[in-house]
């Protein structure tokens, strides 16, 4: 791809991000954390969990939880039809499915193109934000999806294992 030394690679090389929309907002996450994108189907409910935890699905024999980001962050309409998409994230040891309004694009961003996020004005707590980036005439919020998904706030992991992360 790019003939550069590792140092350069770390500093200047364009990283790819997957962008998706939640309501009016556009978000970008590191594409290396994305395992696949699939339709929303056959989710088994889990009792006594917050509404945004939709349940679990079978990903080739592995039981994976599904989170609806629209419900979690009160954005967009939480409807489920054949157009509803799920981004399957691979976060190190864990796999999580994430329901969003739509998946838009894969974009390349240079670290310099990501500007620090303001302290306010975002739905997500700033601790999960990497920054803001311009995509054409739009603005994408770059999210540290691993940090967000493994946070206490999402309630996807037991407190004990949480400290291990």
């Amino acid at each position: 791809m790019i003939d550069a030394t590792e140092d350069q690679a770390n500093q200047n090389v364009v990283q790819e991000y997957l962008t998706f929309t939640l309501g009016e907002e556009e978000y970008a996450i590191d594409i290396l954390k994305v395992q696949e994108i699939r339709g929303y189907d056959a989710v088994t409910r889990i009792a006594n969990t917050p509404d945004y935890i939709k349940g679990v699905i079978n990903m080739r024999g592995v039981i994976v939880p599904v989170v609806d980001m629209r419900l979690k962050f009160h954005l967009g309409n939480a409807t489920y039809d054949q157009f509803t998409v799920m981004i399957i994230l691979n976060l190190g040891q864990r796999i999580v499915g994430m329901v969003v309004d739509s998946v838009s694009d894969v974009i390349g961003l240079n670290p310099e193109e990501i500007r620090p996020a303001p302290d306010f004005g975002s739905t997500f707590d700033t601790q999960y934000l990497i920054g803001l980036a311009s995509v054409g005439d739009r603005m994408a919020i770059v999210v540290d999806i691993e940090k967000l998904m493994t946070s206490q706030e999402m309630g996807l992991i037991d407190k004990l294992s949480d400290t291990a992360l």
Binding site: A47, V56, V62, I63, D158
Partner: peptide, 17 residues
């Protein structure tokens, strides 16, 4: 029997999936 805890967590009243 599959574990729920591999990618999720313990669920009260449920021993596995």
């Amino acid at each position: 029997i599959k574990s729920l805890e591999t990618h999720y967590r313990k669920v009260e009243g449920i021993s596995g999936a």
